[in-house]
């Protein structure tokens, strides 16, 4: 029982991190109809920027204050993501308004290559560390409830908390601020939003910036866990089943989907994996999403797709 719950909690925490990446997909898809494959590359790019800025800032400050260096690096990386958002909107999206979904998908794959190339040219292509002072040691919990207690990784726990906090902030931003209201209007109907004077281009920059900041947070958490390296970009492929499971247009869907996929992956790997030779995590997530799609083609929380002739 203790082991089961331990796996469950591990899955939930991994799922929270998938949700973070999935959130980036959903934000951009909702507001501009672009299925942004570059989200993984954005995570890599943001994490690279963060790692190197932090290193440089630390050197410039003489290694006195890690916190200050990280703060500078965070602001710097955020500014970098703003630049990325602006460039993407100005030079790519603006010229591709009203194109088909498949074309836009391919464009974001092109952007992926560019981001990977630029990121590694500017920031280097070795493995870097992000040290934001996350505690690494695991803790035992509920020792009196279960035999042997439950081992929880403190780092995972904090990461999950940060993710939850970010989701809360985003919800507030979307529901309570004028910019958030404009974003929701654009997501509902582009033309109607334009007609009441919402500047579509600026909204897109903001959305890509928000997605960039989400990618930055995801990059910091993944990066401090695994080190910042090229394989970080493949995290997008792990988050895709989350997006379609939850629904492409739903923010809560990204969260719930992430938790389901995280738990499903871990449990399947532990309980089914040994029977078939292991390593089933990645396709199990996709098959799980596929099964859900067979019953709900728009995902769990997505808008119902209505076909009219």
């Amino acid at each position: 029982m203790g082991f089961f719950i331990e796996t469950l909690i591990g899955g939930l925490m991994a799922g929270m991190l998938y949700s973070l990446v999935a959130l980036g997909f959903v934000l951009i898809f909702k507001s501009s109809g672009v299925f942004n494959f570059a989200q993984g590359a954005m995570v890599l790019f943001a994490a690279l920027a963060m790692a190197r800025f932090s290193e440089w800032a630390n050197a410039a400050l003489g290694g006195n204050s890690l916190f200050l260096a990280n703060l500078i690096a965070f602001v710097g990386a955020g500014a970098t993501m703003w630049l990325v958002a602006w460039v993407v909107e100005r030079f790519v999206l603006r010229k591709l308004v009203n194109q088909e979904g498949a074309t836009l998908l391919m464009v974001t794959l092109g952007i992926t290559y560019v981001l990977e190339g630029v990121g590694q040219t500017i920031f280097g292509s070795e493995i870097y560390n992000i040290d934001v002072g996350m505690p690494k040691e695991p803790v035992m919990m509920f020792e009196n409830l279960f035999e042997g207690g439950i081992l929880i990784n403190k780092e995972d726990f904090i990461a999950a908390l940060i993710a939850a906090l970010l989701v809360g902030l985003l919800t507030l931003f979307f529901q309570k601020t004028p910019v958030g209201r404009a974003l929701r209007a654009v997501a509902d109907d582009h033309q109607a939003a334009l007609s009441i004077g919402i500047p579509l281009n600026r909204i897109w920059v903001i959305v890509w910036l928000v997605a960039g900041v989400v990618a930055l947070v995801a990059g910091i958490i993944w990066g401090s866990k695994l080190g910042v390296q090229f394989s970080l970009a493949t995290v997008a492929l792990r988050a895709l089943p989350v997006v379609i499971l939850g629904g492409l247009t739903s923010v809560p869907g990204a969260i719930v989907g992430g938790l389901i996929i995280g738990v499903g992956e871990k449990l399947s790997e532990v309980y089914i994996g040994p029977m078939v030779g292991g390593g089933i995590e990645i396709w199990f997530a996709y098959v799980l999403a596929l099964v859900v799609l067979l019953f709900r083609p728009q995902g769990l929380f997505g808008e119902k797709i209505i076909n009219r002739v």
């Binding site: 895709l240 997006v243 089933i280 396709w283 996709y286």
Partner: peptide, 20 residues
Amino acid sequence: RVRGLYLAVATLAAQFFCDW
């Protein structure tokens, strides 16, 4: 049953299953 981009992602299931 599944259309468009949902289908595109769903076909990735074939990819990862075959890799494995």
